[in-house]
């Protein structure tokens, strides 16, 4: 089974439970927190990847982690299920699929906004508004800083990219210089 299909199935099952209990947004946030801890902790990734650690050991560590991260019983049981099925390696894909499905079901859309310098709250609000007009949907902005942009903003939303970065302008200038020299 393809990883995306598998992640979609797990995400759909979790979303159905969340919608039924009206905690889908909470589950989404909890998954983001757990996913963040996993992505920043290579030891955790090794624990769930290395076959020399059995399910009991993994569940024990996961239990300790979830005490600190604080998640709902639904999220907790879901993560233990993934551990038993040895599917924690797909957690990142499952979280992405969960958000996509949740956004789709609620008429929302996510925008990955990359900036060189953090946007102020009024700027973010203005961005949400204008992206909402462009897409006709409620927009969830996920900002991220990347100094390689030098300056400006890059927004990825619904398969489109609105690149207003200084890096892109320099790349365009570079291409024109190359073309004019040819």
């Amino acid at each position: 089974m393809a990883a995306s299909t598998l992640a979609h199935r797990y995400a759909k099952a979790l979303l159905d439970i969340g919608v039924e209990r009206k905690i889908q947004d909470q589950i989404g946030r909890e998954l983001d927190r757990v996913g963040g801890v996993f992505s920043q902790t290579p030891e955790l990734q090794e624990l769930f990847r290395n076959p020399k650690f059995d399910v009991a050991a993994r569940k024990s560590v996961l239990g300790e982690l979830l005490k600190r991260v604080m998640v709902s019983p639904v999220t907790r049981n879901f993560l233990f299920l993934l551990t038993e099925k040895d599917r924690m390696s797909s957690l990142k894909d499952i979280i992405q699929a969960f958000h996509a499905l949740a956004d789709e079901s609620s008429g929302r859309i996510r925008a990955q906004v990359t900036v060189a310098s953090a946007l102020s709250e009024p700027e973010l609000a203005r961005l949400r508004t204008v992206l909402g007009k462009l897409t006709g949907r409620q927009v969830i902005v996920e900002p991220k800083e990347d100094p390689r942009l030098i300056g400006g903003v890059v927004t990825r939303i619904g398969g489109k990219v609105y690149d207003g970065s200084v890096r892109a302008q320099l790349a365009t200038l570079h291409a024109r210089l190359r073309e004019s020299s040819i």
């Binding site: 900036v115 060189a116 310098s117 946007l119 102020s120 700027e123 203005r126 961005l127 204008v130 992206l131 462009l134 030098i150 300056g151 400006g152 903003v153 927004t155 609105y162 207003g164 200084v166 890096r167 320099l170 200038l173 570079h174 210089l177």
Partner: peptide, 28 residues
């Protein structure tokens, strides 16, 4: 381009970032 990037990085102030963000939002 490398020189331009270096100069821009050196010269770019917070106000410039705000201006760039504002221009970006205006274009959108």
């Amino acid at each position: 381009i490398t020189a331009a990037e270096r100069i821009i990085r050196e010269k770019l102030q917070p106000a410039d970032h705000r201006r760039l963000a504002g221009e970006y939002l205006s274009r959108l």
